[in-house]
Amino acid sequence: MPEENTARTTPARPHDAALGSGIGRVLLLVYGIFALSASARALVQISTHFAEAPLAYLLSAVAGLVYIAATAGLAWGGPWGRLIALVSCSVELAGVLIVGTLSIVDAVAFPDDTVWSHFGSGYGYVPLVLPFVGLWWIWRHRP
């Protein structure tokens, strides 16, 4: 970046910046969106037609909780927030890979979709990419 431009561009990120700032704040928004959509979806599914696909709806609820935990961990920051975010991002990655594979291999067990079905194709594959970005950010932000 040329010298005369530095005043208008953003300064370098300090080493002690919070987990939930910078790219972390972008993640906060995206995780927040998924926390809301996955848990709201689970709530509607479980309260209106739970018997139709109990496994899928319970997985929706689990996904919602995982996203809520990740959002909270990122927002709190510090050692505990980082740990919560790390665990929930790992669970999220395992979840999207396992549920994504199962929903293709064993379609009978998943008569209705979850956020993670088909690797999150219903959500533009964002659920597949998100845990990688989250884990990268947490790793980059190690103390």
Binding site: T10, P11, S21, G22, L29
Partner: peptide, 11 residues
């Protein structure tokens, strides 16, 4: 508004 960096525009 909490993020006065390029990431604010990404948000």
């Amino acid at each position: 508004r909490m993020e006065p960096t390029r990431w604010g525009n990404l948000i």
